[in-house]
């Protein structure tokens, strides 16, 4: 085994990958959110459609999006590897547990939270990404240029109350996942310091509330608009 594979196979190495991919995905969330918020602009989706077009055509963004998929995949694969390893580390569990007295629920259930988020992600990708890329799309003209009318697809989806509800609930799961994951990633990277750790924790909590709320706000607002 080379030192690289040896390192990545160690418990610390696996955690390192979780933390790095996790932090990247956190960054991705911000970028994604900024783009999506354009859905709420009062311009009938023009800005959003243009943004979607640029995302699909910009070669740099395409590379990043492939990386993004790869990181999601790595994050999932390594979480499975770690969970299997951790299960094996305690083949017989306790009859009684008072874990709630020493740790938060979300920190102990990152796997469950992550699984829900993964399911959401698949639905989300099927509903939008796949449709936009491979489905039959309506088009719209702005200043004589034809764009895929992604906004229309989104607006249609968000007029379905069940879909909106699903979206909102999943964002709740994301919030809990982030509430532990954000600070945890820094701890795993070894970035723990008396001066900065309290700040990282606060920012993490703030992030885990703000970002999923804003994400959830979009379908809710669009649903109301559709009424």
């Amino acid at each position: 085994m080379s030192w690289v594979t040896k390192t990545l196979n160690s418990t610390l190495g696996k955690k390192l990958l979780m933390a790095l991919t996790g932090l990247f995905l956190i960054l991705f969330l911000v970028v994604h959110l900024v783009g999506n918020l354009q859905l709420l602009l009062p311009d009938e989706g023009e800005a959003f459609n243009k943004y979607a077009e640029s995302m699909a055509t910009n070669p740099f963004i395409r590379v990043v999006s492939i990386g993004n998929f790869a990181f999601i995949l790595l994050h999932v694969i390594y979480s499975i590897l770690l969970t299997r390893h951790n299960r094996k580390s305690r083949p017989i569990g306790y009859a009684e547990s008072a874990a709630s007295t020493n740790s938060t629920w979300s920190s102990r259930n990152m796997g469950i939270l992550g699984t829900v988020i993964l399911i959401f992600l698949l639905v989300h990708l099927k509903g939008f990404y796949y449709e936009i890329k491979f489905g039959e799309m309506p088009f719209i003209d702005y200043e004589g240029v034809s764009y895929k009318n992604v906004f229309a697809i989104v607006a249609a989806a968000y007029s379905n109350v069940l879909y909106v509800a699903f979206y909102v609930v999943c964002m709740g799961f994301l919030a809990f996942h982030l509430s532990h994951g954000f600070a945890s990633a820094f701890q795993t990277l070894g970035l723990n310091h008396v001066k900065y750790s309290p700040l990282i924790k606060k920012v993490g909590i703030g992030f885990s509330i703000l970002v999923p709320t804003l994400f959830a706000l979009i379908p809710v607002v669009m649903y109301i608009q559709s009424l």
Partner: peptide, 24 residues
């Protein structure tokens, strides 16, 4: 032994109060 999920349970239960700063 298993990997770390940074739940902090170890630190909370350690009779000598050893901090997870050490894990970082």
């Amino acid at each position: 032994f298993g990997a770390c999920t940074n739940t902090g349970a170890c630190e909370a239960e350690c009779p000598k109060g050893i901090s997870i700063t050490n894990i970082a």
